[in-house]
Design a protein around this nucleic acid. Structure first.
Lengths: 146, 146
DNA sequence: CAAATTTCAGGGCTACTGAAATAC
DNA sequence: CGTATTTCAGTAACCCTGAAATTT
């Protein structure tokens, strides 16, 4: 079978198109996908999080958490403080600007979903997303387990 | 909506799982996805191809064609010769070893497809792949156009 | 002259590993 | 002591751009 007929290939192209749509929305405001992931988990968790906690919830490597937080902190969207209960940890919190930033990024991400799914009608979307979650397996937390 | 519920996220995770399955099969024999793409188009086109021709058919950037061909040539799977009709071009051809290599990689890629689609039954696969091709759009050449 | 081909240099994003410093 | 957290250095694969050298 020709490589471009393989499901693995079509999946990669569908992902690439979706990812391009999403990143285009985000770069328009100077943001990246990692920014959105981290601000999202911070916005949803009222209790302060350590960087390890952020990495777990945002499914990001510790390295990428560190680098992304550095830029977010430089831009004034988050603050890092040493955890008073455990000096090994940083406590990371959203600033008001960060919370506002997240609302913007979430709105842009929502726009992107509509663009991505535009080729499918409402009926087809449900079936498709169900099958997609099965294929994603434990990598998405929406599928059979979660 | 939580970022992990977004279709863009689930799509990326499905792709990542599929890609991991495929690359695991290939790395087991020391090959990469680009190797498979290039050997595939060479194997299917009896007439010799230039590097630009390979890039077009394999949907690879000219830079990646150059780098991948260098390793394939070092391993004895392809040969590059100056095109006698146009000295700007290289004519690239599979060696017998390259043809055999491609048969191996194609078999491994086929195995990977089965593993990837395992969570879906036969009925669901057709619908899913049809929807997926729509989302991939012009990036796959299987969808509505092409 | 302009255009095409190959190659090199380099970057950006995503995902990841090893190791150091620090603190528990 | 061993373990956990953060940080730095670095890698791999994928996708892409600019520019040079060569030839048409």
């Amino acid at each position: 079978m020709f490589f471009a007929e393989l499901p693995t290939w079509v999946l990669s192209q569908a992902h690439l198109r979706a990812h391009s749509i999403l990143t285009a929305k985000l770069v328009a405001v100077g943001a990246r996908v990692y920014d959105h992931r981290i601000l999202d988990v911070l916005d949803r968790n009222p209790e302060p999080l350590s960087q390890v906690g952020i990495g777990t919830l945002a499914r990001l490597d510790r390295r990428d958490v560190t680098l992304t937080l550095t830029t977010l902190e430089e831009d004034g969207y988050v603050v890092r403080r040493p955890d008073p209960d455990d000096a090994r940890r940083n406590v990371v919190e959203l600033t008001p600007e960060g919370r506002e930033r997240q609302r913007l990024l979430a709105a842009l991400a929502a726009d992107a979903q509509e663009d991505v799914l535009a080729p499918l009608d409402a009926d087809a979307r449900g079936d498709f997303l169900g099958a997609l979650a099965l294929l994603a397996g434990s990598r998405s937390l929406l599928g059979t387990e979660a």
